[in-house]
Design a binder for these strands. Structure first.
Lengths: 355, 355
DNA sequence: CTAATCACCGTAAACGTTTACGATGATGTC
DNA sequence: GACATCATCGTAAACGTTTACGGTGATTAG
């Protein structure tokens, strides 16, 4: 208490007053016996303030629990401390994983995240969502756009702050950067794994073609087959759901057209497949090899544990956040693509091992 | 164009100017030929402005793309248009489902949501997260606190805006409302279902006791057993993971202590169980009945499709948002508890059907 | 015909910061 | 000893709104 340079009573008065009114920069200045300008300098780590004064101001700030009013700061500087995230409302694995990872990295960079999701991915609702985000004063926006309709809506929308999109396989436009993980590579990895295990008849249970992910994964499967000189296998286009995969696989069984191996566009798709086969007395992997995509929680405890592809959401989030922050703060960052990895488990077998 | 009351040139000039500078309320006023006060009245649906003037102002607003500066509004009114959500960073089914549902309902009520997650649920980091949220100018905060440590940290924290917590089975304190779904009832439903099907030896593969959900679901299981006059079955406490359930179940098999029926604290837990049994030649449901909790995507395509308990996250979100908004806006809302529902599928069998 | 009422509108002050600029005293230089 | 330099600090204006108040002219009441 000996080093207390602040008059006791004044401090106490202010402290009481602050219970009803939030303390301002002026309250701090009064107690510390300096002008508000000096307090502002301390707050912004500006030079031109002596060590002693700085110390004293800092102490007062702590004492009375002063916190800067962000609205006032934003008003005068018109720069922002939060970034907006526009997502489709889907609880699907990819979007949610990306969302969580984005919040995480934004927080570590000192930004708060304001998220808003849009129900139908149509032009006006996307524009409205962008506007709402802008209104809240975000410095930039990252949109998670797994569906092609939504990406198109974003391209056609206008926005005053930088917008960056995470959309597998969509191309960038002048005002909308686009970034994503290399899912085509993931699909190639999965398919190549099947090829390496000796399969030649490799089908694809695709996701929805309304999604970039669905399109790109299919493309990767095709490419891997082509590169290996294999003729394209059966390709069925679905909607990611276990239900669709289940019913479609049952149909295949009835028609006696079950392939040697299947690359399923998602783990949920694989789940439906596996059940259909189990109920039909077809064993995985003995009778048919299956590989999924996503590595959802629990896929290592499917029957059998699923070989699948894992995406690195944190890395993706970090990367796209770097790019956005670069756009906001006016610097340039390079974008090295991120590669997913194959996780080999028990749902794929080796054929003709002694060839 | 005939009804154009705004001088062409003036409007055009301003429109060009607005490319560099965001249009303000004054720009609108100038073009519309009124004072900024009138524009403000139009913006806030205040009376004392003629229909004709209102119309004209509205038209100008649309023409030049004026949008209200939220920072300026927040500064002078000190009321907010966003609510904060504090979550644990876990990607678990419950928290994420709640989060998405909260964003959804907040948006429909005209609020943006700012989310921040906290890595370790300890006192200071929770307090810091609350402060950060407060700084961004939220009107209130909803914290998703599945873990008891986190709830405790919230209780001990201080915050200037209303805080409401979603935590199963935690009690409210004077400054922190607590709300949740009636998970104990859910657990009772699951257990009672097993009892109804003729089981008397009902074990529980519990979740983590660090989580309210784990504690409450266990309590519900105990209560159902007690009410039915059954003696408590085996209870193993885990960590929600398939891995733990798998290994623990294998242990049970080795010791020849597999019970008649098991209430698993989560679908992921059930997944691990089922695999362990499948590998040991024990059939579900013929040899052991299993019921889960969560109804995660795909649980209807497990082998076998899982009987489980589904929570109504949208209803929970709506309810807790109502309560928070009530606290912010100073009105009172009643809180009717929400009941989860049992979803009966194929993982539970009927014993001694002809008794 | 005067006064009161009313609908409508303009103006000043305030919200809590930041920023550009100017002022002060102390120190160093020749 | 006069002058320039420097570190440190104070002050005014601005950011874009809202709110409380005051002021018109037109309409109505007596």
């Amino acid at each position: 208490m000996a080093e207390m340079t602040v008059p006791h009573q004044a401090a106490e008065e202010l402290r009481v007053a602050s219970r009803r009114r939030k303390p301002t920069i002026n309250d701090v200045a009064d107690i510390a016996g300096v002008s508000f300008g000096t307090v502002s300098r301390v707050l912004n780590d500006a030079p031109d303030v002596s060590a002693a004064t700085r110390q004293r101001v800092l102490q007062v700030i702590k004492d009375i629990g002063y916190r800067r009013n962000r609205a006032a700061t934003a008003l005068v500087t018109s720069r922002s401390t939060s970034i907006g995230i526009l997502s489709d409302g889907s609880p699907r694995f990819g979007p949610v994983g990306t969302l969580m990872a984005l919040e995480n990295i934004a927080r570590k960079k000192g930004y708060a995240t304001t998220v808003i999701s849009v129900e139908q991915p149509y032009g006006e609702s996307v524009q409205a969502a962008l506007d709402t985000l802008d209104d809240t004063g975000v410095g930039g926006i990252i949109v998670i756009a797994p569906m092609v309709d939504m990406a198109a809506a974003v391209w056609n929308a206008s926005c005053r702050v930088p917008v960056e999109m995470i959309a597998a396989g969509a191309s960038s436009t002048p005002n909308v950067f686009t970034y994503s993980e290399n899912q085509e590579l993931g699909a190639r990895l999965a398919t190549q794994h099947l090829i390496d295990r000796g399969h030649t008849d490799i089908a694809h249970f695709a996701g929805s073609m309304d999604w970039f992910d669905g399109r790109v994964r299919k493309r990767g499967w095709e490419a891997a087959l082509r590169d290996a000189g294999l003729k394209p296998g059966l390709c069925l286009e679905g909607d990611w759901s276990p239900k669709w995969a289940y019913e479609t696989a049952l149909q295949l069984v009835r028609e006696n057209k079950v392939p040697q191996a299947i690359f399923a566009a998602s783990d949920h798709t694989a789940l439906g497949l596996i059940r259909a086969f189990a109920e039909s007395g077809i064993r995985v992997p003995e009778d048919v090899s299956v590989v999924g995509f996503d590595d959802i929680e629990g896929s290592d405890y499917f029957l059998p544990p699923l070989t699948t592809v894992r995406q690195d959401f944190p890395a993706l989030a970090l990367m796209s956040m770097e790019v956005l922050l670069g756009a906001i703060e006016g610097r340039d960052v390079d974008r090295t693509p991120i590669a997913p990895v194959l996780v080999v488990r028990d749902s794929t077998r080796q054929v003709s091992p002694h060839q």
